[in-house]
């Protein structure tokens, strides 16, 4: 393997890792705080990309507006989802909420197919040219995705230090004790949904100029987000960030050698990791539903 190829594969891995980080951090936040396994997470990501397409390409607004619109749109949808669906099934237990999100995700997916069909919604690249250095070729859009992911993760880290962020972490740690300390659990829950879904919106918006928007884009990313959460550790934000980049890089290198068997390599490594560290890299073992 030449150095150029190595660097190229590394950059590919970091770019897709950035996307996984954003989707997985939202997913792990909701799983950690609400203990809801949100199967609709990938669909929020897909909708975020389509909102960005609508705002930037159809309406011709600046791309930053598209990113904000995706963030706001998905945050609002997250809040609506909480108040209309999640809230009423939370008490019924882990599996009920999980099934409800499966149904909700399916509805979103089918509506998207109805609206957009199976074709692509292409968002023109933010920077047309391709960067070339030392035999390495790079789409500037990928750098934006990577930088965007890091900025968002830093902002999230800062957010989790605020009063509401600390309350979210407290609820994730122990909901009952947090409530006894005077934390408004309901407020924490809907804010968590807004943040978790908003992160997907940003991820979708960031990736749209690089990978375009299509109705099937969510399912694959969601699968990877689940892997990232398992590898990083449930509820661990730093674990999700680390695992996202690890998974992205492993995926990139694995394809070079084993092509479509790359997912097999990832699953094998995940199985190996979980055997030795059931809680993932930086987290605790997954909670046993009902306990």
């Amino acid at each position: 393997m030449t150095l150029q190829l190595f660097v190229q594969l590394l950059i590919n891995g970091l770019m897709i890792g950035g996307i996984y980080a954003l989707v997985a951090s939202g997913f792990t936040l909701i799983l950690g705080v609400l203990q809801v396994f949100n199967f609709a997470q990938g669909h929020f990501y897909m909708l975020g990309a389509f909102i960005a397409y609508a705002v930037a390409t159809v309406m011709g607004a600046p791309y930053i507006v598209a990113i904000i619109a995706s963030l706001a749109g998905m945050a609002v949808l997250g809040i609506l989802t909480y108040f209309s669906i999640i809230k009423w099934t939370l008490r019924s237990g882990f599996f009920h909420t999980m099934l409800v999100t499966v149904a909700f995700g399916t509805i979103i997916g089918q509506l998207a197919v109805l609206k957009f069909g199976y074709s692509t919604a292409v968002v023109a690249p933010l920077i047309e040219s391709t960067l070339q250095f030392g035999g390495i070729s790079l789409n500037p859009g990928k750098l934006i995705v990577m930088a965007g992911a890091i900025v968002v993760m830093v902002a999230l880290w800062w957010f989790l230090k605020t009063k509401i962020g600390v309350a979210m972490m407290a609820c994730a740690e122990n909901r009952e004790v947090a409530c006894l300390q005077g934390i408004n659990a309901e407020k924490v829950f809907w804010v968590t949904m807004a943040v978790g879904c908003g992160l997907c919106g940003i991820a979708g918006a960031l990736v749209a100029p690089v990978l375009s928007a299509s109705t099937n884009m969510g399912s694959q990313v969601f699968l990877k987000a689940m892997i990232v959460v398992m590898v990083g550790g449930t509820g661990s934000m730093s674990g999700a960030l680390l695992a996202a980049f690890v998974v992205g890089i492993v995926e990139s290198f694995a394809f070079q050698y084993v092509e479509s068997f790359a997912p097999l390599v990832i699953f094998a490594l995940v199985a190996l990791l979980l055997y030795f560290r059931p809680g993932g890299l930086l987290g605790k073992p997954l909670p046993i539903p009902g306990q």
Binding site: L5, Q8, L9, N12, M15, I16, I19, K142, L211, S214, N216, M217, S219, Q220, V221, E251, S252, F255, Q256, E259, A262
Partner: peptide
């Protein structure tokens, strides 16, 4: 179901 074709293009 691939959406990110970067590894494929690199290969």
């Amino acid at each position: 179901d691939t959406t990110d074709f970067s590894p494929i293009a690199t290969k």
